[in-house]
Design a protein around this nucleic acid. Sequence first.
DNA 1: CCGGTCACCTGAGTGC
DNA 2: TGCACTCAGGTGACCG
Length: 273
Amino acid sequence: MPELPEVETIVRELREQVLGETILKVDVRLDKIVRTGARKLPGILEGACIEAVERRGKFIVFSLSGDRYLVVHLKMTGQFLWSLEPNQWPRHVHLKIRFSSGRILLFRDMRQFGRILGLTGADYRSWLVEENLGPDPLELPCAEWCRRLAARRGRIKALLLNQRFLSGMGNIYTDEALHAAGIHPLCPADRLSGRQARRLHQAICSILTEAIHLRGSTTRDYVGLTGVGGEYQGSHQVYGKTGQNCPKCGRPIQKIVAAGRGTHFCPGCQPEP
DNA sequence: CCGGTCACCTGAGTGC
DNA sequence: TGCACTCAGGTGACCG
């Protein structure tokens, strides 16, 4: 479910609540979600103190004392929540972490696509190298963005979704950014003019910033740590608006498949490449 | 390097 | 009501 703004929101909420907590007990209820081995996870995490929580693209990274790391990818439907009353848990809770304060953090994931890794320092650093994540869009200077873009021949939508090119963008914000910049999703990256490339950079940054401000988009099941959804869906111009009139030019929003994903765009504002 | 398809899962919505 | 079918915020493997 979550893209950069939703993951950023969750990370900020986690940071407020779990920094300084010591992990006492880890209980894995669905082994396959732990990519580094469900059996080994408690040994890596238990006894460690949470020193930092950060976002790397769409990954959540908990840095723990003793050079240990808990890495989580929420994929489509992963979420964190605080334990409710005992025996009142929702369905699909796959991991339970009990802290020294007595609170219990749950990881829940209806579709079971989410992934969890427990790593010691050397393994964490080699994992980072393997992932080879592209730059975070909010930390990428426009000039470097333009250089990276001009070196690619793929279609712009696929490129924006490629986490090794740029980390954090997903289907919603890609469609919104391309619409704001007036660029067709199938346009080859190296055919964008300098002006288009700069407009796209600006659109991505402003849309992501505003979406973070509104705690992300809730269209189905996304909720933050407190169970509250985001508000940015009210600002969507094209995503999920098939057939509705474009707010900019009035023509009906079209939906096609690009990069294997449902793709929304305005044929008036985003002309064929 | 690039694009397309499928696989991984559960559940909501739609249409008959 | 029920059933079949499509689609969903992500990504990785595999193939041409």
